[in-house]
């Protein structure tokens, strides 16, 4: 979104990480004749009276303000720092290229957080499908179970034997404490730099995770959210009443909140870990409203949000845990968001 673009040059002033480009060129020989900003920066250093130049560029990884510095001791000769504030144009150019480069090269790790309550069979199927569809991705699955009486945790332990205890983490809580806090609990144990949140009930098919990851890499977005309401996405198994409420809720929320996201209540999303940590701490709602609050707050904070189409097949096994006065809760949540965001 446009907000992020305007965000870019500003961000680098705040982040202000330092790095030596010449060592970067050395480590990445294909960069030698590409004529990109990085290389041009090298050319401009010839004009300056020094043997090697030291230049700053932002790292668009908000999960840690890490700075990459010259690992090559030979490069650490007296150097000139080209001021960040000097030329926002060049900085903007470099930030984009470096960001793309870094994100493609570094090994991203994805933590998949799945909250469960009485999902004995579903969790096994979901985990099988995750491992089937994420072959060459570094990931971990974090199951946050709220003391399900149906023995969900036994199944997760059996799955740990099959797939390894380092790939499937069981982070259980003693009793049913709600969905919002379940995400927060899982997040505390996440070791990846990206977090994927999904339901265990098979409405969120793991086959879409690669498209979330691809979208993030292509756009550098902070949040990728799955949407059911565009072409390529869809819903299966809802009756007319359910469709009507869903449409009504969506239109109402869009007219009142202008969120810039088509699917507000979907909960199949990929977040940069730092972004999730930032957003989740300011969210207090429950149920559907929680998902809406997360995305609305993130959008207000100016995070870059992208969407991918997903299909949503209503749960086959088990029963839904949301219920009761959903519509009233939703309306209350909407008003709450109007006044607080």
């Amino acid at each position: 979104m446009a907000t992020e673009a305007a965000h870019g040059p500003l961000r680098c002033l705040l982040d202000g990480s330092l790095s030596a480009f010449d060592s970067d060129v050395r480590r990445r020989p294909y960069h030698r004749n590409c004529g990109c900003a990085l290389h041009r920066a090298g050319a401009c250093s010839n004009v300056l009276p020094c043997s090697s130049s030291h230049i700053s560029y932002p790292i668009h990884r908000s999960w840690s303000p890490l700075s990459i510095s010259a690992s090559d001791p030979a490069a650490s000769s007296p150097c000139v720092a080209i001021r960040l504030a000097g030329d926002p144009g060049i900085v903007g150019l470099m930030s984009k290229q470096m960001k793309e480069q870094l994100e493609r090269e570094e090994k991203n790790k994805y933590s998949i957080i799945i909250p469960t309550y009485n999902e004995r069979l579903n969790i096994a199927l979901v985990i099988y499908l995750i491992f089937k569809h994420l072959r060459d991705v570094d990931f971990e699955v974090i199951v946050v179970d709220d003391g399900s009486p149906d023995g969900t945790q036994d199944i997760v332990r059996q799955l740990q034997h099959v797939y390894g205890e380092d790939r499937i983490l069981l982070r259980a809580r003693p009793k049913k404490l709600g969905l919002g806090t379940a995400y927060y609990h899982g997040l505390k144990h996440a070791s990846g730099n990206f977090v994927i949140i999904m339901d265990a009930d098979l409405s969120h098919h793991p086959k879409y995770i690669p498209s979330f990851i691809r979208k993030q890499l292509e756009t550098g977005a902070s949040i990728v959210t799955g949407t059911r309401y565009v072409s390529g996405g869809g819903v299966h198994g809802w009756n007319l009443m359910r469709k009507l409420t869903s449409r009504g809720a969506n239109v109402l929320a869009h007219t009142l909140l202008w969120p810039g996201v088509s699917d507000l209540t979907g909960s199949f999303r990929l977040y940069r870990k730092s972004v999730l940590e930032d957003v989740i701490t300011s969210c207090v709602s429950k149920g559907y409203v929680f998902q809406m609050e997360m995305i609305v707050r993130a959008s207000r904070k100016g995070y870059h949000i992208e969407e991918v189409p997903i299909s949503f097949v209503d749960r086959v096994y088990g029963s839904s845990k949301l219920g009761g006065s959903e519509i009233m809760e939703y309306l209350k949540g909407l008003i709450y968001l109007l006044f607080t965001t």
Partner: peptide, 25 residues
């Protein structure tokens, strides 16, 4: 709401694929 309801995207083929996935899993 009306237009959205009429054009509500559905995905019956995904339900079939999911059944296959479940059996396989």
């Amino acid at each position: 709401v009306g237009v959205g309801l009429m054009l509500f995207p559905t995905c019956p083929q995904d339900a079939v694929l999911l059944q296959k996935d479940i059996i396989e899993a």
